[in-house]
């Protein structure tokens, strides 16, 4: 479904962030992208929806070559790629509902979005998604009144209302506590399974990634150095990805914690 061909990015400063990366991701697969800071994880997912312009190489999404698109076609293609951010990146002075509906901006005209007159179907879907992430009672709260976990749930709803085929997830748990991190990861993976979505999740927490994803890609200095199932990560492969360190504790099997309902999560 998504195919990266020899994807390369060189920044204006001369830093080579991605070195001819080849990755193929089938429909419905959730992939964790791990690697040290500066390995090119953020650059990689931003090259897919072209928030960062790749220098060379191709990005093929369902047979469409994204790197060749003009600005109008690029906007249309972006609609089908939901993005979830590290610091949530909600528009803080807008309400929760406005933030969720902003995911529909690619589908509605300027005046409708300016006057906040979204089609009823979009409003219904927004309420359905807010209910799914346990925040439907918060619709008219301003985004900056929410806790970190709640904000990330709004971020997830905003990405999903785009009706995406692919989720690009950049460090979704980096500013969350361990319990909320698990809840958010579980929520993302459940939603991907419900909708048969593919997802690329940048993540620093290797153990957390191992708990939830089907495949792990390790990136170092812009190159893929590991690509395989999460349970085959060994201290040696982690050393290859991150450098020398004692890895035994990191890949210890983590017990699956108790199932948390969305209501409970909303309070957290």
């Amino acid at each position: 479904m998504l195919k990266l061909n020899q994807l390369t990015k060189r920044y204006a400063t001369g830093d080579l962030a991605l070195k001819a990366v080849d990755v193929e991701i089938p429909k419905g697969q959730v992939v964790a992208l791990i690697g040290p800071s500066g390995a090119g994880k953020s650059t990689l997912i931003r090259c897919i929806n072209r928030l960062v312009e790749p220098t060379s190489g191709g990005v093929d999404l369902n047979g469409k070559e994204l790197t060749k698109l003009g600005s109008g076609a690029l906007r249309q293609a972006r609609r089908r790629m939901g993005m979830i951010f590290q610091e949530y990146a909600l528009v803080e002075r807008l309400t929760v509902m406005e933030n969720v509906l902003s995911g529909r901006l690619g589908y509605v005209g300027f005046w409708r979005s300016f006057l906040r007159r979204y089609p009823q179907s979009a409003v219904d879907e927004a309420f359905r998604l807010l209910e799914r992430v346990g925040l439907d009672h918060m619709a008219d709260k301003r985004a900056d009144e929410l806790s970190g976990g709640q904000r990330q749930r709004v971020g997830i709803a905003r990405a999903l209302i785009q009706d995406p085929e692919l989720l690009l997830v950049d460090e979704p748990t980096a500013s969350l506590d361990p319990k909320t991190s698990r809840q958010i990861m579980r929520l993302i993976c459940e939603l991907c399974a419900e909708r048969d979505l593919a997802a690329i999740i940048n993540i620093h927490d290797v153990a957390l990634a191992q708990m939830f994803v089907q495949r792990v890609i390790g990136l170092r200095f812009g190159e893929v150095v590991y690509d395989g199932p999460p349970n085959e990560l060994t201290p040696d492969t982690l050393t290859q990805i991150y450098g020398e360190e004692d890895w035994e504790a990191t890949i210890e099997k983590v017990d699956e914690e108790e199932v948390v309902t969305p209501e409970e999560g909303a309070v957290a």
Partner: peptide, 19 residues
């Protein structure tokens, strides 16, 4: 990042400014 998130939804330029 807030502006980037709006851009990532496929918003047009005016919508991007507005949101």
């Amino acid at each position: 990042s807030q502006a980037e998130a709006i851009k990532a939804t496929g918003a047009a330029w005016l919508q991007w400014i507005n949101y």
